[in-house]
Simulated scan of single mutants.
Amino acid sequence: MSLLSLKNMKTSIGQYHVLHDISIEVPEGGVFVLLGRNGAGKSTTLRSIMGLWSPSPGSVTFRSEDLTGLHTAEIAKRGIAFVPEDMGIFGGLTVAENMVLATADGSFDKDRLRWIYDLFPALEKFWDKPAGALSGGQKQMLSVARAIIEPRELILIDEPTKGLAPAIVDNMAEAFRQISDRSTILLVEQNFEFAKSLGRDMAVIEDGRIAHAGTMADFAADQDLQDRLLSLSA
């Protein structure tokens, strides 16, 4: 049974029809990757799932519950977290204060916080420093850490490697592997090598529609399909 199901989802932003008929099934566990060219509708799909844009018609179902029409805060309470492309951190607050804002009651589970420190050691080092003083990679670590400071069943992550140095990308990949042992990840990513190393299942969005869906292993083995849908050489 799918953890998340999108059925015939359409999303318009003003007069622009961005998503035309999106249907995907995200199984529980592991990493599901959404691929596609710039402007294809990947980020809009994540934002529609979170209720930041309102899909209509169509449906978003999470563990058999229809989320369509719910406010973002209500969707988050179901156990879904969102890491936006712009990271969304508060630069004037410390790392610790950013993390507190992501909790339900302002307190941390010590074992879970230690796990996050092991994933992202820089956060422990700069715990009392302003988040705005962090490097780009460290800010991305903080954005991901906020999403997992409390147990979540599903984490939506938008373009986490954008602008990051290769060493940071490698560290992020290892962190995502460990996170996906505890939570399902729905990942939007342009870096195909990063996506290929993590994804179990995948779909390609093209012009607001699903152009292909299947396993990452099959897609990674089909160079012609990659070139046609992504215009890349993997």
Score class of each variant (00 low, 15 high):
residue 67 L to A: 08
residue 118 D to W: 07
residue 159 E to W: 00
residue 4 L to E: 00
residue 1 M to T: 15
residue 88 G to F: 08
residue 61 T to D: 13
residue 128 D to T: 14
residue 5 S to D: 14
residue 192 F to H: 04
residue 111 D to F: 13
residue 13 I to E: 12
residue 18 V to E: 02
residue 166 P to A: 10
residue 57 P to T: 03
residue 165 A to Q: 11
residue 139 K to Q: 14
residue 136 G to C: 06
residue 114 R to G: 14
residue 101 L to Q: 12
residue 23 S to T: 11
residue 162 K to C: 13
residue 75 I to C: 00
residue 202 M to E: 06
residue 185 I to F: 05
residue 179 I to Q: 01
residue 199 G to S: 08
residue 181 D to H: 15
residue 36 G to D: 04
residue 143 S to Q: 03
residue 102 A to E: 06
residue 40 A to L: 01
residue 148 I to L: 09
residue 184 T to N: 03
residue 47 R to Q: 11
residue 226 Q to E: 08
residue 3 L to T: 02
residue 103 T to V: 08
residue 4 L to M: 08
residue 233 S to W: 12
residue 217 A to R: 15
residue 217 A to L: 13
residue 25 E to F: 05
residue 178 Q to G: 13
residue 122 A to W: 08
residue 162 K to I: 12
residue 225 L to E: 10
residue 44 T to I: 08
residue 207 D to L: 13
residue 160 P to C: 03
residue 83 V to Q: 01
residue 115 W to N: 02
residue 38 N to M: 07
residue 179 I to W: 01
residue 50 M to N: 05
residue 85 E to T: 07
residue 117 Y to A: 12
residue 165 A to V: 01
residue 180 S to V: 06
residue 126 F to I: 09
residue 211 A to V: 07
residue 156 L to N: 03
residue 123 L to Y: 04
residue 122 A to M: 15
residue 203 A to R: 04
residue 91 G to D: 10
residue 191 N to W: 05
residue 69 G to Q: 05
residue 222 D to T: 03
residue 17 H to C: 14
residue 17 H to P: 10
residue 61 T to G: 09
residue 222 D to R: 05
residue 23 S to E: 07
residue 148 I to V: 12
residue 9 M to K: 07
residue 75 I to N: 06
residue 86 D to S: 09
residue 82 F to I: 06
residue 227 D to A: 14
residue 205 I to Q: 03
residue 40 A to T: 05
residue 172 M to F: 12
residue 47 R to A: 00
residue 51 G to W: 00
residue 108 F to H: 07
residue 153 E to F: 06
residue 189 E to L: 02
residue 104 A to F: 14
residue 104 A to M: 13
residue 157 I to V: 13
residue 194 F to N: 02
residue 185 I to C: 05
residue 197 S to V: 08
residue 2 S to H: 11
residue 186 L to G: 02
residue 164 L to Y: 01
residue 38 N to I: 09
residue 140 Q to W: 10
residue 135 S to C: 11
residue 199 G to K: 04
residue 206 E to M: 11
residue 40 A to Q: 00
residue 10 K to V: 14
residue 109 D to K: 04
residue 65 E to G: 11
residue 99 M to I: 09
residue 58 G to Y: 00
residue 213 A to T: 12
residue 100 V to M: 13
residue 194 F to M: 00
residue 139 K to D: 04
residue 4 L to P: 01
residue 50 M to G: 00
residue 77 K to D: 12
residue 134 L to R: 02
residue 169 V to R: 02
residue 112 R to C: 03
residue 134 L to M: 09
residue 156 L to Q: 06
residue 159 E to Q: 10
residue 210 I to S: 02
residue 218 D to Q: 10
residue 232 L to A: 12
residue 211 A to H: 09
residue 209 R to Y: 12
residue 66 D to A: 04
residue 72 T to R: 06
residue 100 V to G: 09
residue 45 T to C: 04
residue 161 T to Y: 04
residue 172 M to K: 03
residue 79 G to A: 04
residue 210 I to Q: 04
residue 6 L to M: 11
residue 168 I to Q: 06
